[in-house]
Design a protein around this nucleic acid. Structure first.
Lengths: 247, 247
DNA sequence: GCGCACTACGTACGTTGTACGTAACTAAGA
DNA sequence: TCTTAGTTACGTACAACGTACGTAGTGCGC
């Protein structure tokens, strides 16, 4: 009788080891590592209970002793990757620079694990490492005199920008890992359709946008500008207690 | 022999009706409507090829004559909902007001179809109605003298804010539609864990944030502020050709 | 009117998450 | 020390999914 209740439960609230019985063969860290290894190699869709169990070298159903539901596996993955930040002991004091650095680090991490962005917009909760991350983000704003609610909103916005933009950059590549054709083929077909529609004249401004120069788009620059504008927006409201808008 | 190639294809590029053979029993609009009906009623996870076919009153595999892959069904859904905007013939000329109105309309539509936000961050491409939407968004910026690339980036940011925030608001409710317990139960359990962690003293700033007043959060106000800040950020850069930052 | 492209749909396969039962094991209580 | 109850391990099984494939019927273009 496996004591898995049909009630909601947070995986972080259940003890990893409970006195009785044989000692578990794996730790949560082992499991998270295995799942991340699979996702890195074959994409998020390859992360199935069977594959992860096989990667660990145990039976499929044994995994359910550690991870009551598949969603919890996702939470383990997010938490593990969130632990890859090497957060400095103390922020520098320049909140804008600190948050920018942090956002770039987040973007870099999500590029290493292209499934992370998609997962973060699907997974709901707080986990030890995400809390550590948020706590550090808040500490970047220590020099600012504002209610924490306001700071939280800024942190949320920065996180939102990061996940939105990186997801946008990477979703095609990630998605086509489990498709029978390549990302290039997909892109080509969609661009062909778009080109035909634009040539119809129904969307003059869209056409103008695509006609414009159009060297290859520098995604990092786009990301930088978006982030800068969000911080600008916050800066404007706090111009009096913080540094001026245009440095 | 069903002529479905294992090659990428954009559903909008295939003709709805091709001369030969018996006339199709359904239009793409019928199918999109059926799928949206199911998603509205039972959540996005209930949108399966079998259910949609049943809703239409045809065999499961008949659906594949209209929709080569399930992803295309998603595209039909996004396009249909994107058609629910009643866009004015011409924007008012005040780009900030126009974009704000549009963003609020988008938010309202996504509240009517709580699965829409999740779908929009998963679905990749342009469709007739999304192009119409983007074209209109660009037309809101006609009064601004900036390259279209810059305008596109602003439009993308506004869309990003809308989907990110609405997805965040609604994902729990949507998700628990296919779960055996209620959203309230889930929320309670997660908050209990969060409370315990916060009480541990490891996250003092997070604790302070949650200790702060904390009347019920007005999600629309949060959304408003986020949007305003994004527009502020754009305003700052264009202050010289546009209206001043603080009205 | 002939033929072929199209529609319709039942069957079937591989894959998924996971409920359930059973056997082995070990720490806690007698 | 011996029992015993809770845990771990895992094979089997099931319902549901996307969809490949084959067959039968239909009606437009030649």
């Amino acid at each position: 009788m496996a004591g898995r209740p049909a009630e909601p439960e947070v995986i972080w609230a259940r003890p990893e080891r409970s006195g009785r019985g044989p000692k578990p063969a794996f730790s949560r860290a082992d499991i998270a590592a295995a799942a991340c290894r699979i996702a890195d190699a074959d994409g998020l869709d390859a992360v199935t209970m069977r594959h992860v169990a096989a990667e660990l070298g145990c039976g499929t159903m044994s995994l359910y002793n550690y991870v009551p539901r598949k969603e919890d596996l996702y939470e383990l993955m997010v938490d593990r990757v969130s632990g890859e930040y090497d957060l400095p002991e103390k922020p520098s004091g320049d909140w804008r620079a600190d948050l920018t650095t942090l956002a770039h680090r987040a973007r870099a991490i999500m590029h290493v694990h292209p499934w992370m962005a998609r997962l973060m917009s699907a997974v709901y909760g707080f986990s030890p490492n995400t809390m550590r991350y948020i706590e550090y983000s808040l500490s970047c704003l220590d020099s600012i005199d504002a209610p924490y609610g306001e700071k939280m909103e800024l942190v949320a916005m920065v996180n939102g920008v990061v996940t939105t933009y990186v997801a946008n950059e990477l979703q095609t590549a990630e998605r086509t890992k489990s498709l029978p054709w390549s990302a290039d083929q997909e892109h080509a077909v969609r661009m062909a359709y778009l080109g035909r529609e634009i040539a119809s004249g129904r969307y003059p401004r869209l056409a103008a946008a695509f006609a414009e120069d159009s060297g290859p788009i520098d995604m990092e620059a786009v990301f930088d500008r978006a982030l800068a504008r969000v911080l600008d927006g916050f800066d404007v409201r706090r111009a009096e207690t913080s540094r001026p808008v245009t440095p």
